[in-house]
Structure formats: C-alpha cells, structure tokens
Amino acid sequence: MNEVPVMVTTMVEFTLDGEAVRVPEGATILDACQREGIDTPTLCWAENLTPVNVCRVCVVEVEGSRVLVPSCSRPVEEGMVVATDTERVRTSRRMVYELLASSVEMDRADPEVHAWMEHYGARPERMGDRSEIATVAQPVKIQDDLYVRDYERCILCYKCVEACGDDAQHTFAIATAGRGFDAHISTEHDVTLPDSACVYCGNCIGVCPTGALAFKTEHDMREAGTWDESEQQVTTTVCPFCGVGCNLELHTQDERIVKVTSPADHSVTHGHLCIKGRFGWQHAHA
C-alpha cells in the first residue's frame, strides 16, 4: 500500500519537422522539440515557471495557423503538423533578437543567447545608431547590500515577476508597470526595494536570463573585473537553515562562495530558495 498513484497518460501523435512523433497528452511543442533533440531558443521560458509566451523567440510554424505559434505554451494536438526551421520561423526569431539587442544591453545574457544570435545572423545594428533610436538605457539601481537591478539589461521576459509571484515566492513585490516600450518591472510607485514588499529570496535573480538582476556580490566583482566564470566551481549541497532540505549550488571562486543558486529540476526547491538559503552563506567567510 505504499505505492504512489500511477498516472495513466494518453499519447498524442503529430508531425514534427517531417517526422512522426508521439508525446504524452498535455506536452507542449517545446517539450516535444526537447525530447526529439531539436534545439529551440527560449528567453522567457523556464522549466520551473508557467509559460508566459511573451518573448516569441521559440515560435514555430503550425500548418493551418495564420500566424506562428509559441512552442513553449502550445500543447501538441493530435495530427498537428509543425515545422521549426522555415524561413518565416528564422526571420521572426532573428528579428526578436535584433529588436531586443537593439534596445537592451545583452552583454551579460546567458551564453546560449549569443550563440543563437549568431546562428540566426542577428544584426541589431541595422535598427539604427544606438544614440538615435529608443533603448531602455537607465542608471543601475543599487538600494541595499544584496540586490542589484540593472534594468538597461531587462528584456521584460516576466520571469522575475512570476518568481516573485504565483510561481514561487508569492510576495508580489514587483510587477510590470507602464505600457508598450515604457513597460518596465517596478515596485509600487517605484519605491526602493527595501521599502517594498521584497523579502530577498533572490528567486527573481535566479531566473533572470540577461543579468538585469544580479547578486551584489557578483555585480561588485564584475565591476571590479574579478568575476571569472571559467575559474568557478559549482558544488551542490544541502541548505543548513531548516529541515526542508533545499539543495544549494554553491558557486565558488578562489575558495570563496560568490553566489548561490538551486537546481530547477530538484523536487524540493524547483530552483527556488528563501533569503536564508540564498544569502545566509556569508557566515562561511565571517
């Protein structure tokens, strides 16, 4: 009687880049691509967050659909015919990167972002001279000793809002404010983070793909020119602060912890931590 319930899953068959593919009902096109080894770029998608399908970089062509569809959120349907590498798909993906990179500082984005930009031949400079076109350039926000918010690197992927909200922390300290190109991530009335509801779980930083949100430790080292990921090790261990057993990934450089993350695929944390787990490590170097 100690079994866990076994879920019976129905399989759905569809055509993916010309091949017949079977996936469990409810799987998204992106899930299917990942199973089949079809590399697909993503920015706003993360395995531990609800898909918001706003970046549109994962779009694919679905037969019978007037427009391209976001693979991250569209469930596979029986008989669907999906193409992931058509001219239309390539154009849209390239343009998404060009639009973002022409308006946002992308230099601290995840390495795969740069690989994809190269893959699709993105040339953001053709949007015009940076000084003459609209960008999100703005001063960095440093309002406490733990967080740095550098919104000129923000691509508005909504991940931090999700991590602060329903998908993890349920604190709702930040939300998207404003509209259109002026849309931005903000506390209420743009009050400082210490004056907001923020409880410094760091989950927003954990999901940020472009370095717009950073731990102050990392930011300071980057500014000082000492941040060197090639010299860093990542060690997984267990958080010391309660009995839940959250896994911590300790990023160390020169025998010192420089930041803490958590594995998104671990059943205990789903990649999320609390302030103690995220920042309590400093006693190791006290």
Partner: peptide
C-alpha cells in the same frame, strides 16, 4: 501603435517603436 502596444511581446513592443522611427 507604438503608444498603444501593451508591451507584452517583443515583436510588437519593440517592432512598433522601430517602425515609427
């Protein structure tokens, strides 16, 4: 269109700005 884009998706948020430019 630039003013009225909700800003949610990249093609419209930035695309309408670049079109106006």
């Amino acid at each position: 269109f630039r003013d009225e884009s909700c800003g949610q998706c990249v093609p419209c948020r930035v695309g309408t700005v670049r079109q106006e430019e």
